[in-house]
Design a protein around this nucleic acid. Structure first.
Lengths: 155, 155
DNA sequence: TTTGAAACACGGACCAA
DNA sequence: TTGGTCCGTGTTTCAAA
């Protein structure tokens, strides 16, 4: 699974995951390479899937999303033999930004974003808790954000 | 805090948060606008901070990050009167991708990424638990990812 | 690795509704 | 104020040396 990355490739990735607006030329300069070979490396890493995509990150607050909720979900024994149905539904909810399967007491951890507590509760009551086999759902409400990044630590 | 967004602006944001490689011209086409006015809107939204930045998202697995850990942290009463010191340290750790202050029993929820359990435990023991005033730290290990997106639901 | 040419994107000036 | 057209400049992409 792990790739052997040259130190130049790592530098390129570090730059791009911080600012995807950098042109191939700017990156080339910073990694002390010339334009074309640098461009080829970026391209290769995109084709290999190392670079999954480039996206714009939006400001939660300015768009009115004031809370993030981490929800621990436990399924009934029966539900656990039929995870696909639950997972498909989860992937389809745009308010669910992340869903992880967990080792330990919960089955899933969801990260859900909402405009306010009321709209979160509506989502919980009308959608999440309506899924069959959901036995427990504990909502942990995040009030403020100390840090948020998508940058992986590339040593 | 909330902005009044036109439906065109929302469309543009929806496109850009899905794929930041789209040129102003391509976006213009999709939102039925011509190039310049579309470009101006994008620019405006960047200046307003609605669009925070553009980044490349990298593939965790291919880079060898096999686990994500959600850590609940409780500080001692004394530590709670001095949160800044803790938060500054947290922001400086590249393996901590997110840190939220929580309503409820924990003080912080951290999302930490690591190559394997061993390297996570080293980080926990040698860094996190070394911070003064950390009273409890519960690690919840995520095993697989059902969903991960940075796209906000813009209705 | 460098050069260069064709295609394309950016961002300004300016006009119309 | 918001949209549209035109166009010079710079950037990207990719082939050929």
């Amino acid at each position: 699974m792990q790739e052997k990355l040259s130190s130049i490739d790592r530098k390129i990735l570090r730059l791009l995951q911080h600012n995807a607006d950098l042109s191939a030329a700017e990156i080339a300069e910073r990694v002390e390479l010339s334009q074309s070979p640098c461009w080829r490396r970026i391209n290769r890493m995109q084709e290999e899937g190392l670079i999954e995509r480039k996206v714009a990150l939006l400001n939660h607050k300015l768009l009115g999303f004031s809370i993030t909720v981490f929800v621990d979900i436990k399924l009934s024994a029966h539900g656990r033999s039929n995870l696909d149905e639950f997972e498909k539904a989860i992937v389809g909810y745009p308010e669910v930004l992340e869903c992880h399967t967990m080792a330990g007491s919960s089955d899933y951890l969801l990260k859900v974003i909402a405009k306010d507590i009321d709209s979160y509760e509506r989502f919980l009551r009308d959608h999440l808790l309506q899924r069959p086999h959901v036995q427990e759902a504990h909502s942990n409400i995040a009030m403020s954000e100390v840090k948020r990044t998508t940058e992986l630590p590339l040593d």
